[in-house]
Design a binder for these strands. Structure first.
Length: 471
DNA sequence: ATGTCC
């Protein structure tokens, strides 16, 4: 079955590389239904882009650049574009592995959801359990997840199971605006709203026994999935630098086909300042997911006490970020600025950037489904390094806009329907529920099937939701 | 995604 479609370079004036769409044929109609392929063609025109502009099967329209998009620019003179990273800098996913089986928690599942909802603050604009002062937030921006560990809100063992160790050293808080600081002081340890969640899952199916053994996953086991990012702080960094680049780009002789797709050369003053601020926001997000993990462990211990065992971190991935990486291009190793917007790094066996204990299997790749549908644990492959700059999909991918979803979905009925399927929903907003209804998303099973067939990731386990905590 | 418009 075909899974890769290419729009040749000459199709439109200004294209510097071909545009590639990874999707099974039955997904194509939905993909052509919004503006995402037009946006992909715009990306193929960005100065310094290498090989191809790519989208994953979960692609949908985003701000300037499609969500589910990947673009690698020549280092150091190719462009960096905040639209290619997204407003939620280092939005990402982490998976905590419990030592309990579903039958050991089923009687207390509702109690657990309530405790998780109490312990992990959620909702738009909501503050958290900690309020940082300026010096503390500056340290969070520099140190990422390590700050949580050093201050009693994390576990040192977690650090080796976070992409990039949970910190980007290029971060420099002096390029994060006062406004962004103000939005960040009270938001550490909060999940936010939209599609962000904490989810209790059961391991439903194992596809690859050997990899599952290394990942320490088995059928029936309870795991917890966390999906959130850098909250208002990262959003403000993106807003600030999109505005700066919109006026700066003409000074570098750059013209964009879309005002939303602002960019500047990576090695320019504005490019360097944005990158340092982006790394700081990414560090905030990794610290945020570490503090949320601490909150979840508190709730877990409260409910299960001594019988609860430990919640270990399998892995933490970023899916809205730019990374400086080396890749094989035109049969030589070249340094590139890889933009992943709604795309997950999926490095394969033997890659030196992943933890040693995953060297034989490839890194864990975490793919959340929509609310009430399955999620997946995949493993990265060498195929992704050959084809997609070591990247794959990030989730189900929106099919309907938030507005369209609200028109079609009645939240009270939706909640009841999910309850009937055995899924507890703990949410502060009915409107948010309607926007995140499964009908608003593509079929995650098809998304995962595509990346598996394309050889850019392989299936390890399927997860089924039992309880969802969201804003 | 987001104090969903300074």
């Amino acid at each position: 079955m075909p899974y890769l479609w290419e729009i040749p370079m000459g199709t439109r004036p200004g294209m510097l590389v071909p545009a590639q769409i990874y999707a099974l044929e039955e997904m194509i109609d939905a993909i052509l239904n919004d503006n995402s392929i037009e946006q992909l063609i715009h990306v193929s025109m960005l100065p310094g882009i290498m090989k191809a502009a790519m989208v994953m099967p979960d692609v949908h329209q985003g701000y300037g650049f499609p969500i589910g998009g990947i673009a690698a620019m020549r280092w150091p003179d190719g462009v960096i574009s905040p639209g290619g990273i997204g407003y939620d800098i280092n939005c990402g996913v982490r998976l905590l592995r419990s030592q309990l089986h579903e039958k050991q928690i089923s009687a207390q599942l509702e109690e657990l959801s309530v405790e998780l909802y109490k312990e992990v603050p959620s909702g738009i604009g909501k503050g958290g359990q900690l309020t940082l002062d300026r010096e503390q937030l500056t340290q969070v921006l520099k140190k990422g997840a390590l700050w949580a560990v050093e201050n009693g809100y994390g576990d040192r063992k977690d650090l080796q199971n976070i992409e990039s160790g949970g910190v980007l050293d290029f971060a420099d808080p002096q390029y994060v605006s006062e406004h962004a600081f103000q939005r960040g002081f009270a938001q550490l340890g909060t999940i936010g709203a939209g599609n962000h969640f904490v989810e209790v899952d059961r391991v439903e199916e194992i596809y690859d026994e050997e990899t599952a053994r290394v990942f320490q996953l088995q059928k029936g086991q309870i795991v917890i999935l966390i999906h959130t990012g850098s909250r208002g702080l990262g959003h403000q960094v993106a807003t600030d630098y999109i505005r700066i680049m919109q006026t700066a780009m003409s000074r570098y002789g750059l013209k964009s086909p879309d005002r939303e797709l602002a960019c500047v050369p990576f090695d320019s003053k504005e490019g360097q300042e944005y990158y340092k601020a982006m790394c700081a926001a990414a560090n905030f997000a990794w610290c945020n997911r570490e503090v949320i993990t601490w909150e979840i462990r508190k709730a877990w211990n409260k409910v299960f006490g001594e019988n609860g065992g430990k919640l270990d971190l399998l892995y933490d991935v970023a899916h809205n970020i730019a990374k400086i990486e080396e890749h094989h291009i035109d049969s030589k190793i070249q340094k590139v600025i890889v933009h992943r917007k709604g795309a997950t790094r999926a490095f394969g066996p033997g890659n030196k950037e992943i933890p040693a204990h995953f060297l034989q299997t490839g890194q864990p790749v975490l793919i959340p489904g929509s609310m009430g549908t399955n999620s997946y644990v995949l493993a990265g492959t060498r195929g992704s390094e050959d084809l997609t700059f070591g990247s794959c999909c990030h989730g189900a991918g929106r099919r309907l806009s938030r507005t369209a979803a609200k028109k079609q979905v009645e939240a009270v009925q939706l909640k009841k329907k999910l309850q009937d399927q055995g899924i507890h929903i703990q949410s502060g907003s009915f409107r948010g529920l309607a926007e995140e209804a499964p009908i608003a998303y593509k079929d995650v099973d098809l998304v995962v099937e595509t990346v598996q067939q394309a050889g850019i990731a392989k299936k390890v386990a399927k997860l089924r939701p039992l309880a969802v905590i969201k804003g």
